[in-house]
Design a protein around this nucleic acid. Structure first.
Lengths: 270, 270
DNA sequence: TGCTTTACACCTAGGTGCCAATAT
DNA sequence: ATATTGGCACCTAGGTGTAAAGCA
C-alpha cells in the first residue's frame, strides 16, 4: 500500500511540472463534497495529508511557447456536450443502473490539448462518490433529500481505460475521446468490466490522462491503479444521482427527448 | 530496411528458442505458394535467404515441464471452427470485399496455449497473398483459372492488432480470440483500418503472437511491424479467393446457410 | 464480357423507458 | 412504503446477399 511514485511535498500552486502526480491508491473512498461549483476541478498533488489543499486550479489556457518552465504547457481537458450536461444538471441528473449494465446518457466525451505528440498516453475514466450519503427523492417537493449514511462496503472505484489506449499524444488530440460504451451496474459481483455503483448515491466522473514512462506500460487489463504520472480532471456539470428507475419526471422527459435510443417514446409521452 | 532483431543463421529445426523471430519487413510480398497441404504452417526463422528452409514444423504438443531448454514449451495456436472452414475450403472459399469494408465469414478464431502467463503479448492477424496470380472463375467448369499475373502495386499487408492487446498470457489463454470484426476492402485509399486486398486474388490469414519485451510496447496504432519476438502461424483451410460478388453458387448457398446475418435468404433461396 | 458499385429488404445485436411483479 | 427486477415493444446501428445499374 505504499505510494509508488510519491512526490516531495512542495504543493505550492506554482509548481511547473507538466503533469501532477496523484496517487489513487491513497484516495480510497474519500469524498469530495461541494465541488459542485464553477470551474473544472483539476487535481494537483494529492497525497494523503494534503487533501485540504485541493483547490480549483483552473487549467492554464494555451499560451504559445510560454517559457516559464522548460516551455511545457499544461495538459488541458475539455468536456464536449457541456450544454447537454448542463440541461440535465439544472434539473438534477439521474443515471439508471442495472444488473446487466446501463450506458450513461449523456456520455462523457472530451478533447485533450497540450499533450506531447510523441509520448504515449492512456486515457481513463472512473466515477467517484461525491459524499457518503444515501439519498431519496421526495415527490411532492421534487427534491433529493439525505436519507442516511452509506454503508461503507466501499468497492474501490473501477478504472475504465479507453479502448484506444495506449496511444500517442498526437492521435489523442486529433479526436473526440468518447466514453459512451461505459456501463454502470449495481451488481457488486459484476465481471464484465462495468463500473459498479450504489443506487441512490451521488457521483461524479473523472478523467485521467496517464503518461506512460518509456519503461512501463499500462495493460488494459490492469484495471485499477496507474503508477505513472497522472493528470486528473472532473467537471461539475457531470455529477449525477444513481437510480434503478427515474425519480424526477423532468429527467425522464429530457432523456426521451435527447437520447436517440429512446425515440420510441417521443410522441407517446407528450 | 535492415532487420531489427536479426537472428544468427542456425535454422536447424531443433533450435530451442521458445519464440522464433520473423522479420516481416523482409518478407515483402513474397508468395508462399503450395502451402495448401496438411498441417498448419509455422514460420520458423525467416530471413531473406532462407525461405526455402521453411518447413511445416508441427508445433510441439503440450508436454508438462519438458526440461529440454529452460523448461519452455512452444507456443501453440489452434484454429476454432476448423470444420466450418473446411466445408468452405472443399468448395473453394470466397470472401466478398467492398469499398466500405466487409467482414469475413467464417471469421478467424483461435485459442493459444503455452504462453507465459505473466508476460504481456499482443495478438494480431494479417492476410498474405498465396501467389502472384490473378484468377477468374469459369462457370461452365466451376473452376478458378489463372488469368494473369498481378500488377505489383503491392500495398504492404496491414496488420490488424486484436483490440484486447496488449494483454497477459494468462488472459489470452483463457478465452477464444476472435477476429470477427476484421473487415476486408478493395479500397486502396482506405483510412478506417481495414485490410486492403485485391479482388480475384488468393490469400491466407496469418496469426501473430507478439511477445512484448519489458522495455517495449506495441501501440495499437503502430500498425505495421512488430520488432519483438513474433510467433507466426497460419492454417491451410483458411485460404480464400477475394471477389466483389460470389462466383460459385455453392459458396453463396453455404454462406446463406451458415451466416446468421444472411438468415433472410434461407427459405427464399431454396 | 467481366467485374464493381449502389440501393434495398431483411436480418442480428443491442440500447430505451415502461409496467407489472417482486423484493426489502 | 420504497426500491429493484425482468419481460416487453420500439428504437438505433449495422451485417447479409440481391438485382439492377455502372464501368472498363
Amino acid at each position: 500500500m505504499q505510494p509508488t511514485h510519491a512526490l516531495s511535498a512542495d504543493a505550492s500552486g506554482k509548481s511547473c511540472k507538466k503533469m501532477k502526480v496523484e496517487n489513487m491508491k491513497n484516495e480510497k473512498l474519500q469524498c469530495v463534497s461541494e465541488y459542485d461549483r464553477d470551474a473544472p476541478t483539476t487535481t494537483s498533488i494529492d497525497t494523503q495529508d494534503q487533501r485540504k489543499d485541493k483547490r480549483k486550479k483552473s487549467v492554464k489556457s494555451r499560451r504559445p511557447a510560454s517559457r516559464e518552465c522548460e516551455a511545457a504547457r499544461e495538459v488541458r481537458v475539455d468536456l464536449q456536450g457541456s450544454d447537454l450536461w448542463k440541461s440535465f444538471h439544472e434539473i438534477g441528473t439521474e443515471m439508471i443502473i442495472t444488473k446487466a449494465g446501463r450506458r450513461m446518457f449523456p456520455s462523457v466525451r472530451v478533447k485533450v490539448h497540450n499533450l506531447d505528440p510523441v509520448q504515449q498516453y492512456s486515457i481513463a475514466m472512473d466515477i467517484m462518490p461525491v459524499d457518503s450519503m444515501r439519498y431519496r427523492y421526495v415527490y411532492h417537493s421534487s427534491q433529493w433529500m439525505v436519507a442516511g449514511n452509506t454503508d461503507h462496503s466501499c468497492v474501490p472505484p473501477h478504472l475504465y481505460v479507453h479502448p484506444d489506449s495506449p496511444c500517442s499524444g498526437e492521435t489523442w488530440m486529433r479526436q473526440v475521446i468518447s466514453f459512451d460504451r461505459v456501463k454502470l451496474t449495481n451488481n457488486e459481483m459484476d465481471d464484465k468490466g462495468h463500473i459498479i455503483l450504489k443506487s441512490m448515491h451521488k457521483y461524479r466522473p473523472r478523467i485521467h490522462v496517464i503518461l506512460h514512462s518509456p519503461l512501463e506500460r499500462l495493460s488494459q487489463t490492469l484495471v485499477s491503479l496507474p503508477a505513472d504520472d497522472v493528470y486528473t480532471t472532473s467537471f461539475p456539470e457531470t455529477q449525477f444521482t444513481t437510480v434503478t428507475a427515474y425519480q424526477n419526471q423532468q429527467i425522464t422527459k429530457l432523456k426521451i427527448d435527447r437520447n436517440p435510443f429512446a425515440k420510441g417514446f417521443r410522441e407517446r409521452n407528450g
